[in-house]
Nucleic acid binder design. Structure first.
Length: 496
RNA sequence: GGUCGCGUGGCCGAGUGGCUAGGCACAGGUCUGCAAAACCUCCUACAGCGGUUCGAAUCCGCUCGCGACCUCCA
């Protein structure tokens, strides 16, 4: 058995994974900002790290998976006027931040369920950890790496950079940053442009506000992850994940804050998934090119030619390595849909195959099958190469279908190889990659109706009444039910 | 402008020195009453130029094209 190697963004190389506490893994992933509906781009990190979580568990680790909900910040609901925030309005007329945040948190959870992502063990909210964040800020001030200005607190990056490797994660050089950072509102308060806010003084119209030693305000963006990850995973934990776009400034700032507060860097392995692009451009709110998940599932976006099942999206994402960009197109998604359908059907065929008595007639094929199965683990261990795992499963699909169709002898492979096939498909398809059948679960009554139709069609065919038999087949196809005439004369069906 | 990354066959995408992934589409065939499904076969690519090497999609250099981050961002 090979060892698990993960690409560590911090060192820019694949490293052997060794947890801090043998047998246990602390995994923290930056969760969504719930000020709006999740879009397709958001699907990638949560599916990617669901695989990380699942695979670590498969390897026998006890994983504590923490994924936060960013529900504090400067939120506005789309379509609402800025004056909604004015405090003079009646309470129920005003935007209530918690209402907005609850709505989008619920929608996020809905999508995660459909994607079959395992729930994190802890899903802390930023608003629920204001005290922890204030504590941490105070610690940083005590150590002399932060300063207060007009009710806001800023982290002193320049001072930190003197004796710490600031910029290592994101490949920045402080001098460059000092020159190139753009002018933004509120910058004049900072001692240096590169400093970032730990706490922000809330202007009167800001509706999210908490008391703090520095007056009413709200936490800076980066501090929540530092405070919550250390609370639930410890001051040193194994894996921190998130999208590549968070490397700077978010993760870089996290490292700086935690290093000062705790006296050492917080994370062993930094993992970053790449972006989903559309027409070559990153899908993101600021580019105005997002496809929301709800639109994706229903097909209700002008660019979409059809609705896409959550499992198709999941499979589509897994067909690409997580560190590569993934370009959206209807064509690509439709290809994934067909591919997944074929692979899943092979899996179902496999479950029904009868094992032979043990001896392999085709030693070469037998060996090949065992090799394909064994390789899956090596691929996963090589920085979670799900694309290669899927490719291997596809190599085995014709063997499975061939046995069923008679093109491959049933006793070509050994009983061991059969078991190996079954275990491999189950383990990788379901347990590790978290895929599920797309088909509607068949219920008993529908099945009885189907058996009746199949019987009528069979009789019609015997009479050579092909008009009737084809009508049954075609009408069912229109309804999304596909009949398949099997080699042995039986008829099976699949429902889309 | 600075930093980093990418450019693979009709499309999507693995792959980082030799063994020419995989999926989808196309074409041909087997099977079928006809189909569908399945199976078999076909399609042999690595932006361009130059270099290193016995050998490069893979390493180095240059050129062209694209993108990400530097601002909220998964």
């Amino acid at each position: 058995m090979s060892d698990l190697f993960l690409y560590n963004s911090y060192t820019r190389q694949k490293e052997k994974f060794e947890p801090i506490t043998p047998g246990y893994v602390g995994l923290y992933v930056c969760g969504p900002t719930v000020s709006g509906e999740s879009h397709m781009g958001h699907a990638r990190p949560y599916i990617t790290f669901d695989i990380v979580n699942r695979y670590l568990q498969h390897l026998g680790y006890k994983v504590r998976y923490v994924r936060n909900i960013t529900d504090a910040g400067h939120f506005e609901e789309e379509g609402r006027e800025a004056e909604d925030k004015v405090a003079t309005k009646a309470k129920l007329e005003r935007l209530e931040p918690m209402e907005l945040v609850t709505k989008y948190t619920n929608m996020f959870h809905w999508a995660m369920r459909l994607f079959n992502c395992i729930d994190p063990n802890i899903e802390p909210t930023a608003t629920g950890h204001i005290i922890e964040q204030i504590d941490m800020i105070e610690k940083i001030i005590e150590k002399g790496y932060a300063y207060e200005k007009n009710g806001s607190v800023y982290f002193d990056v320049k001072k930190y950079a003197k004796d710490h490797p600031y910029g290592k994660l994101s490949g920045r050089v402080l001098e460059d940053l000092l020159e190139t950072t753009r002018d933004l509102d509120g910058q004049e308060e900072k001692n240096n442009k590169v400093d970032f806010a730990l706490w922000k003084n809330a202007p009167p119209e800001h509706i999210m506000r908490w008391n703090s030693p520095w007056g009413e305000g709200f936490p800076g963006w980066h501090i929540e992850c530092s405070a919550m990850s250390s609370k639930y995973l410890g001051e040193s934990f194994d894996i921190h994940g998130g999208g590549m776009d968070l490397q700077f400034p978010h993760h870089e700032s996290e490292i700086a804050q935690s290093t000062v507060a705790h006296g050492h860097p917080p994370v062993r392995y930094w993992m970053h998934n790449n972006m989903i692009t559309i027409n070559g451009k990153k899908m993101g709110k600021s580019y105005n090119n997002v496809i929301k998940l709800s639109e994706l599932f229903t097909g209700s976006h002008p660019i979409l030619e059809q609705a896409y099942h959550p499992m198709v999206i999941r499979f589509y994402i897994l067909q690409t390595h997580y560190r590569s960009t993934l370009d959206f197109s209807n064509e690509a998604l439709q290809a994934s849909e067909k591919a997944l359908r074929r692979l899943w059907e092979a899996y179902e065929v496999l479950q029904k195959l009868q094992s032979n008595n043990g001896v392999a007639k085709d030693a070469a094929l037998d060996e090949q099958v065992n090799k394909w199965c064994a390789e899956c683990e090596d691929f996963m261990n090589d920085d979670l190469n799900t694309a290669k795992v899927i490719a291997n499963l596809f190599e085995m699909a014709p063997v499975i279908n061939g046995i069923k169709g008679g093109q491959v002898a049933a006793n070509a492979i050994s009983a061991e190889a059969y078991d190996n096939l079954r275990t491999t498909f189950k383990t990788y398809l379901e347990d590790i990659m978290g895929l599920q059948p797309m088909q509607v679960q068949q219920n008993n009554k529908l099945d009885q109706v189907m058996q009746l139709l199949v019987e009528i069609r069979k009789e019609a065919r015997t009479r050579k009444d092909f008009a009737t038999s084809d009508q049954i087949r075609n009408k069912l196809a229109e309804a999304g039910i596909q009949l398949k005439d099997e080699k042995d004369g039986s008829v099976s069906y699949t429902i889309e």
